[in-house]
Design a protein around this nucleic acid. Sequence first.
RNA 1: GCCCAGAUGUUGGAAUUGGUAGACAAGCUGGCCUUAGAAGCCAGUGCCUUAGUGGCGUGAGGGUUCAAAUCCCUCUCUGGGCACCA
Length: 807
Amino acid sequence: MDTYSPTEVEVKWQNRWDELGTNLFSREDLASAKNPYFNLMMFPYPSAEGLHVGNIYAYTGADVWGRYQRLLGHDVFQPMGFDAFGIHSENYALKVGVNPNDLIPSNISNFTRQLRRIGAMFDWNHTVDTTAPDYYRWTQWVFLKLFEAGLVEKRKAPVNWCPSCKTVVSNEQVIQGLCERCDSAVEQRQIEQWFLKITAYAQRLLDGIERIDWSSRTLIAQNNWIGRSEGADIDFPVVGRNESIRVFTTRPDTICGATYMVLAPEHPLVDALAHEDQREAVDEYVEQTKQLDLKARQYVDRPKTGTWIGANCENPITGAEMPIWVSDYVLIEYGTGAIMAVPGHDERDFEFADTFDLPIKRVIARNGAANAEPMTEAYVSDGVLVNSGEFDGLTVADGKRAIVEKLEANSLAAGQVRYRLHDWCISRQRYWGPPIPIVYCDECGAVPVPESDLPVLLPKLEQFKPDDSGESPLARDKDWCTTECPKCGGSATRETDVSDTFLDSAWYFMRYPCTDSDDVALDSEMIQKWLPVDSYIGGHEHAVLHLLYARFVTMAFNDIGILDFGEPFEKFRAHGILTKDGRKISKSRGNIIVPDDLIAEWGADTVRLYLMFLGPFEQGGDYSETGIRGPASFLDRIALSVSEAIEGEADEQVLKAMHRTIDKVSNDIAQLKYNTVISALMEYLNVVREGGRSCVKQEVEPLVVMLAPFAPHLAEELWESLGHETSIFDSGRWPEADPELAKVETFDIGVQVNGKLRGSISVTVDSTEEEALALARSDERVATYLDAGDVRKTIYVPGRILNVVVK
RNA sequence: GCCCAGAUGUUGGAAUUGGUAGACAAGCUGGCCUUAGAAGCCAGUGCCUUAGUGGCGUGAGGGUUCAAAUCCCUCUCUGGGCACCA
């Protein structure tokens, strides 16, 4: 018998879907949808290589979900777009010497071709391309809205600076302190940049985590990234001056063990407090720190360095005098940029004290008994306070409370919460991004471009390579830079930095249902209907940045009144990673697999089924083509069975198996366990075909529906051959299991004697323990073991096990 | 260093969440059919074995239990993320 020809079937249905608009919405469709379901997946960066098999894996899994929702009766909106701005595209364009303006469109059309070929039900009527002026016009609008709300700020921030290339380089481009391109030592430099004040939302971003249905590992990553710590701000008076140093600590209980203070090199008091005898050493040290690139500065295993600034301060609890040091292991951007150093109970302080011979004092002991021996490492575990005067004997938790209370009474401390989350720097001194819509006027300062003047078009520069000016290449286009001030009409110049790609992707999902509108970014009717997103599927690599930024923009827009919800994604699931021979698939490893040939050979349905069969979707799997034959022959057999199916009554045993299958499949698909869904369908087909019997239409129709999310083309073909005239995704309904039929009545359960399996018996749900035991005894083998001693205990779990304890 | 995930036949993986370990596939072996097979169909396939109605077996070691891949403790390894965050 002939097997079916995938390519023919797939092309036929892809064409028909296009002709009938099966997966396409018009604006009216979107407006009138009765049961809207927004199925979102992370849009790709359209690289020149095209989609690789890892992308196909991710999109297939998300498409399976969308098609399943559609079969449940939802109006599923499943758009796709392209995240085409950014340094990635720009660097590639530089490498091949083609302008990104010319490169991106062909990449996009190649991606679109590939995405169509896998048969995902994308609504190509609603697509976005972040580099299109009618998209980034609205990205600029997003910036302006945040600006109006006071959530945008310009300030100096350190960047990596290559003195040889005379340009800003990203952290990724710094290799062991050297510039990736020219190998010269990279240093840090302070430049003015635009920041979005995401830190204002730190607590709300944290609180929201409680409410949303996301993969727990993603939530844990966000939680750690936001990094809330509770502690206290404590003032340490400077000896001989009317000033004090404020520090933040999470361990106020260890204050009696503080033996010195440390200021970050950028701390303003370094200069103010440095004694003239030490000034030279201090200046030299601070200068030396500046020479480091940002990555080297944060390298944990670097030996501790620093110098005494020639001043001391007083411990507000013990009154002891403590020297003030400056060291780059203290970071200006966290806490107050100054710490009280407790070498006995902090590993970094211990290392520093050890290096510079500073006193180390134990103030916490496991059982509250301080021994006099010198400490050899920091003790960071829980315990009881010692050597702490009136606080001796308190636990760490009680000690924290008591000490902060005492200091607060003297106005020397205040309880504080800090976050490690930083404000979001969106300035990029590069070419390939949306220009930040700001102009600088001598009279009026930094002025936002009025909404009506958007977009600020990115000019097509022939030379877009960063040069030695240190500014964005846009600064070289003098015509473009010169403009007039929207406020006073005087002459002004444009901001030449472009914004971070993550700003493009922080709101793209809101734009999808609104692409029919040219005059507004967000069409409130559509937003009302389709947002927040019902389900979002994407890679775990975006667990923090992208997902956090999207949440931040949503919350800010909620506050501004643009949106009436505060969380963009009700449900998020991170798909697993596809590896090859256990290694990540990446261009740098040279193990990229382009799926085109594979699809040409086996067909999209087989490739889809194979990828989903590899392992649990949230876990990923290892790609090796050897196993593809299994899913391929499964599709062959299913096609054969359906084409030969006859009219008539379903066999009773088959019917029962069918309902058990529906039950399992419905359960597992909802949990994204696609691999066990497929194996359950295979098992059922084996039952249907048992002994080469010809099957009945009624037995296979639900099978075709359950197959449809995975192999949509073949499912359509078989659905048609079963006599249906409209698409299975319009006329099919996900089958429901009849609990009566799905019920298992007889079980073969194991019989154990003393926990070891000795036989098996066939029982019903209603079989009593006595009946089960009698049955077990009738088994000669079991009987031998039972007769070896007295029965002490019998454990009978109906439908599961019979275990007899014999002694 | 910290956090997260994981380790099951030759391979991918399954196991009703504490109840017959290895479902479903791949691979391999043998058979049928075929001019032919990277097609289809059938059978076998965890290891040991004195072949038993036997023993062992889910990274290692210990524990709880009538019963552990599953729960607890200790450790090893692998993948991923964060990283001088006071």
